[in-house]
Design a protein around this nucleic acid. Structure first.
Lengths: 200, 200
DNA sequence: CCTACCGATCGGTAGG
DNA sequence: CCTACCGATCGGTAGG
């Protein structure tokens, strides 16, 4: 399937939104960057909110392709959890021009109830659950200690990914990514029910 | 010292910005909420950027008062680190109308170079270092294992605070805060060089 | 502190 | 897909 004009528009839209935010993504600016008229661009979407929702869908497909799908070739459980977090870190390093689209969008819209916020929560929540599910399988398979709390561990791993994005983008230093990698690997390292770790 | 008009303006400005973002904080809206004219309000600040910088300063003073200063009465080291993170969680629950001002501002401005971004990075980085410093003292005093990596542990604790804010605001469920509390206490729990912990 | 105003841009529409 | 336009709002200024 060839890339349609709408796809080209959304590709730019997602890139702009990752830098300027989903509200900062204005129709006028998007049109100018694509050498289109505002109304010509507008014809592809019914409203700004629809454009925002379409951008979220486009960004979620990119995330799925880069982070979730490639992990499908790893064995379910600990290996797949590690593949997901490794892919996630790579995506944080170069996935979008302005850093993680969804982390920024979450904090931008958490105080603005509506369809856009709901969709951001739905999509990001889904990936969170995907990761948690692999931890549960790892526990069932004896790859993590049987008393591991999968909910808390998913919270922890997701926290490290968010912190990596925050620190990398705000301070511009790649150590944020390597620190997160060290911690993620440490938490996911030991197979066969080991599970004892240092605090660090 | 009595609360000046400027202080009253900034109080509203910080609350609006926590919900709408620092760019969404418009002079017109702020003036309307305060029953002032735009130009009357503008007289207190030289430009929108100056208003944003003043709002950052105001918010940082609130954070200092609520999170950092009260921890000064706890003994330096592990106790003070725990006091800081406890206060921080309380501040996440009710510090600003729209969630952590600085977490939102960080992700909003990380792609917009300039004085506002620099100031956000400077202020948030300072608190990060304050926490790390207490961990170093805890190690020196034998309250944490001597091979603890303070840099990584500060990264981890700060990650949990950020995750708590993200999840609490996006999904509106207070479990996010209690999960972070459990994990933070677990990591900071054991005195006298213990330091062995479960992954969860 | 105010009224009155500036040019630019916002989301969106009419009409073709 | 376009030009041309709408009312509203943006940051900011002149003048008092």
């Amino acid at each position: 399937m060839p890339s349609t004009k709408r796809d080209q528009i959304l590709e730019r839209a997602v890139s702009i939104a990752s830098v300027e935010g989903l509200e900062g993504l204005t129709i006028g600016r998007l049109a100018k960057e694509l050498n289109m008229s505002k109304s010509g661009l507008f014809g592809h979407f019914g409203s700004k909110e629809d454009l925002q929702l379409a951008a979220i869908k486009e960004a979620s497909e990119i995330f799925e392709q880069r982070v979730i799908a490639p992990a499908g070739s790893s064995e379910a459980g600990l290996d797949r959890a590690r593949a997901i977090t490794d892919n996630w870190l790579e995506y944080l390093a170069d996935g979008f021009e302005g850093g993680c689209f969804f982390h920024a969008a979450s904090l931008e819209f958490d105080g603005r109830p509506g369809r856009v916020k709901d969709e951001i929560a739905r999509v990001t929540g889904r990936w969170y659950v995907v990761l948690e599910e692999q931890l549960r399988r790892a526990i069932t398979r004896g790859q993590l200690a049987s008393d591991t709390d999968a909910t808390l561990m998913a919270f922890e791993l997701h926290a490290l990914l968010g912190e990596a994005n925050w620190a990398f983008r705000l301070f511009g230093r790649p150590e944020a990514l390597s620190r997160a990698r060290v911690l993620l690997h440490s938490k996911l390292a030991h197979a066969q029910g080991a599970g004892e770790r240092r605090t660090a």
